[in-house]
Nucleic acid binder design. Structure first.
Lengths: 239, 239
DNA sequence: GTCACTTTATGACTAGTGGTCAATTCGTAC
DNA sequence: GTACGAATTGACCACTAGTCATAAAGTGAC
């Protein structure tokens, strides 16, 4: 491999040689380790997305990654941790999509509508990811994953919710959302609205019409919600 | 096999007594069977609600029901079927709570608010049921349960959604919900709103504040939604 | 090259699970 | 008490997550 000649070059380096040599080695080893982790994650993702968590065996992942089962456990604590890592990487992809959600001069309604569309589009293209994330949220027993990874997933979810919050902030500052009396509540309600609608439609009805139903329900629901946000009138039952 | 005993029973059938006797026996056996099923479900529910699906073993259920493992499989096709049956019975309990949701003279807003409160209360008291139902909806692989039971769960979910639909219908007929342009969309959006909010809060934050956060978010979110329903003004967002 | 040492990899193995089935017990009718 | 089908048992099977003693590969000093 590239290993031998690199070691040689460090070898000539003089006084600091030994120390640098060790650091260089460790560095390379870490890179190698990272590369292996990537390989395993890539192999795992393919199967997880196709078959779901339970139906994928660690042996299968190992085989696809061209490693033994034991080796898998050198890089990950558990099957669930592999799964969680796959999720993390995918969630992060979402944030690329909404990074530039604020266009100058747009109304808050437009931004919120755009966010909803991006959110919907993303999860329509990554349906299994949606299922998995919801399942993760709703797990009765904490997954056997490191605190670190658990925190990471939660932090990413919060990041998404934070984007929604900024949109509401913007709408309130512009005086466009007088109907939003409490940002936290509105933010969580909207997030719930989006996820709840997607979840419902993943479960019910025929596949052929699913995408259309999700889009139209989100569009219709958001419409009502926006009307509530942009109106200041009291909710009054009589008319 | 079946031939012989049938012959026997016919053999005795000359007297009415024998025939009635056999029918009475079968009837009693069916009752016994039903009682056993109940026993198993009750035993299973306790553990499922406490530990979730995976962490409960069939052996444990058997032990609690004072039966052998083999016997369990005389009454249920699989562990998942037991689980599903437990769900069904609990979902049906919910419908008792909303059976008399329509009080004469109430506004649609009031009815919808009441529904939301009942829904929230029910699942705050049955959090594990909520988790389980969401997990069921979001399962990547269909559970190994009979079509019949799967249909039953879906039918019950639809029944709940049907109640929401009736409320919207009522609001539109009363002219109270001019903001509801499409019943199906509004109905699904509201259902998504409720579930999404509950799910989000089951996942995030500290336990001590959870109930309060769920209630206030649903209250706030419903407030905005209702304002959108009762208002007829156009939303100024472009799409 | 070779030796000592460290890191990485292996796969047989363990433990624990859902589900099965031949053997056994039980209930009933005569 | 005997015949017989239905109910019940628990040893057993198949499968899989995770472990660990052992082996292989990598590394550096001489």
């Amino acid at each position: 491999m590239t290993t031998s000649h690199k070691v040689t070059s460090v070898h000539i380096a003089g006084a600091c040689r030994g120390r640098l040599g060790i650091l260089g080695l460790e560095e390379r080893r870490n890179r190698e380790k990272e590369r292996r982790r990537e390989t395993i994650l890539k192999a795992a993702r393919r199967d997880f997305m196709k078959k779901g968590f339970k139906a994928v065996t660690v042996d299968a992942i190992a085989q696809r990654a061209q490693l033994s089962k034991g080796a898998i456990y050198l890089y990950f604590k558990s099957k669930e941790e592999i799964y969680a890592q796959v999720l993390i990487r995918d969630i992060e992809k979402f944030h690329d999509h909404v990074a530039d959600i604020f266009h100058g001069g747009d109304s808050a309604s437009e931004v919120l509508t755009r966010f909803a569309r991006i959110y919907t589009d993303f999860f329509l293209n990554e349906r299994e990811l949606f299922r998995i994330l919801m399942a993760f949220m709703v797990q009765p027993n904490p997954l056997n994953i490191s605190e670190q990874i658990n925190d990471h997933i939660i932090r990413n979810t919060n990041k998404t919710i934070g984007i929604i919050e900024r949109i509401f902030q913007y709408g309130i500052e512009k005086g466009e959302f007088p109907g939003c009396r409490n940002i936290r509540q509105c933010r969580n309600a909207l997030w719930g609205l989006l996820n709840g609608i997607i979840a419902l439609h993943l479960f019910t009805g025929r596949e052929e019409t699913r995408e259309e139903r999700i889009r139209s329900t989100i569009s219709g629901g958001l419409d009502v919600f926006l009307r509530g946000l942009t109106t200041n009138q009291e909710t009054d039952s009589k008319s």
